[in-house]
Simulated scan of single mutants.
Amino acid sequence: MDVKFLFANQENKTDSVKKSIIRLYIEGGPATIAEMAGRVGLSIPTTTKVLAELADDGFVSDFGKQETEGGRRPNLYGLKPDSGLFVGVNVSLFHLDIALLNLEGSTLVLQENIPYKLEDSREALLELCTQIKQFISAQGSLADQVLGVGLNITGRVNASSGYSYSYFYMDEQPLVDFLREQTGYRCFIDNDTRAMAYGEFKSSEARAAQNLIFVNIDWGIGIGIIVNGLPYYGKSGFAGEFGHFSLYENELICRCGKKGCLETEASGFALQRVLTERIKAGSGSVLQPKLAEGGALQLEDIIQATLDEDVLAIEAVEEIGYKLGKALAGLINIFNPEQLVLGGLVALCGDYILLPVKTSINKFSINLINKDTEIRLSKLGHKAGVVGVALLARDRILAS
């Protein structure tokens, strides 16, 4: 398989057309030469020549004659889905998820909950690279088809420059360069919530919505914004730091170092704090033994307790949801999105978090604006980030 046209330092017109045709096949499916010529805006002879080259490169296949009602039956051409593969890496505080996706976005392999502790250290970064290399190596012959690696990580990430400023900002070297040196593959990075938003947007259930806000309710709070079908990055690539809106007059120090941020009252950290305080004050809960043993409550423990109908956990989740919904009401007033999607760990509580968010939004946002916004839970759930960042890597490689 010849992939040189994907990585040429100086792209010529034919390379650009090849990428365009692959993108059009991804979006529109198989097509005859005449149909593809119309899609790409070229003559039939030129399109025929480029398709022949893509077939020689190993990316396009002749699917045979198309069924028609009469006349000469044209040949149908389409992608070989597995001719190009992309690795997505979702970096969480306490584990990794790594997936292998093909050109069409289908997940071929998914490894979840790989033990890993995210720390801002060279050792943690090298361990991350080791896990990526081991995953790719384990794919056998499929490893030869890997074209790129996408990695999402929490915090301030500039996807265009390749720098991560919250983690692994070392030696003033772009993180993507270090990853490429260690893994041997072209690498891309993005913010975790933005990757989740993109994965959700690209899922078949969400494609009709061109304007979407994805709310990642995890230990912290972040949003990913899709505007007219494209991720919104802002001037420096840091758009989406919703959790650091200063909304409360409290003395709680946020992870950013400031007081009163939304995260201090409506996040996974806030949920953990509230439940811990109430249990220690004597409130009953199935989570009591966990604290009695000297351990700290994890979000997974709280989510399971909520789904098991623990009253204290449900009450805490509802309070968090109501506070979050009040803040989200402002976003709806500003952006008027088609969809507002709740994702991240805490969203696994389902209706226990969704319903109080909706109630609060209905109370605090303008009805004329919110009536056109669908508020729902993520369809991809915990897979949104790992799928989204693999698709971002794919789309950047195929960009002209």
Rank of each mutant, 00 (worst) to 15 (best):
A195Y: 07
I334T: 15
F214A: 03
E112K: 15
L377H: 01
F94N: 15
G295E: 12
L128S: 03
A195N: 05
K379M: 07
L380W: 06
Q139I: 09
G295Q: 13
E374P: 00
T14P: 01
E200N: 07
A399P: 03
V386K: 00
L126K: 08
V3I: 11
P174W: 06
A266N: 07
K363G: 04
L6Q: 12
G58A: 12
N336M: 14
G294I: 11
E35F: 10
F135E: 01
L93V: 10
A99Y: 09
K259P: 00
A316T: 06
I225D: 01
E181P: 00
L93G: 14
L377F: 11
G155M: 06
A195R: 04
A99L: 08
Q210V: 07
T193P: 05
C187F: 00
E181G: 05
S285F: 09
G70W: 08
N216E: 11
Y232W: 10
P289L: 12
V311M: 05
L212P: 03
G388S: 15
A239N: 06
G388L: 06
M36Q: 14
L297M: 04
I302W: 03
R194Y: 00
R376G: 05
Y169S: 12
C349F: 02
L328H: 07
Y185W: 09
G388F: 14
S246L: 15
V215Y: 00
V149Q: 01
A296D: 13
I303H: 05
L79M: 12
L342N: 01
G321S: 02
T306I: 10
G222D: 04
G222V: 06
R278C: 00
Y248C: 07
V176L: 03
I314P: 00
I221N: 05
L345E: 11
N336Y: 13
G70D: 13
K363M: 11
L96F: 08
K358E: 11
D310C: 03
P45G: 13
S106G: 00
I21L: 15
E123R: 04
R376L: 10
T154Q: 14
G58Y: 10
R23T: 13
L368D: 12
E241F: 01
E181F: 00
N191L: 07
L262C: 04
R376E: 11
D192I: 07
A393Y: 09
D192T: 12
N191Y: 01
F94Q: 12
I279Q: 04
I302H: 02
L230T: 15
S267G: 09
T14R: 14
V40M: 10
P356I: 03
D301Q: 10
I33F: 12
G385L: 02
L328V: 04
I320F: 03
L324T: 00
N336A: 15
V89Y: 02
L85N: 10
K235T: 05
A37G: 10
F269S: 11
S92L: 12
N250C: 01
V357H: 04
N228T: 03
T47P: 09
H244R: 08
V357E: 06
A206R: 07
